[in-house]
């Protein structure tokens, strides 16, 4: 067996949760668990997906939202055990896989056209 196949074999054993399909430009809500002492509770993070990086169980995605006039970005690993659920709120129509240009835009300019089916 080659190196790639062996690495694939190890990565195949890592469980990935059943998450909905989403890509850059979509607006999603990530429900993730937060541990406070011994208590666990859920928190939401809603924003625009900027990019998805990597593949397999080590893939990550970046979400950006504007919180009290400050841009906040968060990177989630796709196989993180803390992700409870992902809800896709809006499908955005963008031409790029990585929409970093959004960082330089504010207000009305920072809108993303919704995808028409």
């Amino acid at each position: 067996m080659g190196k790639q196949e062996l690495l694939q074999y190890v990565e195949d054993q890592i469980e990935i949760k059943d998450l909905p399909q989403f890509k850059a430009g979509d607006t999603i809500t990530v429900q993730y668990k937060i541990r406070e002492g011994s208590k666990e509770r859920l928190q939401n993070f809603q924003g625009v997906v900027l990019q998805r990086v990597g593949g397999g169980p080590t893939e990550t995605f970046t979400i950006r939202k504007i919180s009290s006039n400050v841009g906040v970005e968060r990177i989630f690993p796709i196989s993180s055990p803390f992700i409870e659920k992902i809800i896709v709120n809006k499908r955005g129509a963008v031409r790029r896989a990585r929409i970093f240009y959004l960082r330089g835009l504010r207000g009305k300019k920072a809108r993303i056209k919704e995808q028409r089916f």
């Binding site: 190196k3 062996l6 690495l7 890592i14 080590t58 690993p77 993180s80 055990p81």
Partner: peptide, 21 residues
């Protein structure tokens, strides 16, 4: 040495790992 990947442990920490044959 085969390559590197990462695994989440029971505590939820993302651990960088090396795969060795």
């Amino acid at each position: 040495k085969i390559g590197m990947t990462s695994i989440f442990d029971e505590a939820g920490k993302n651990i960088p790992c090396t795969v060795i044959e």
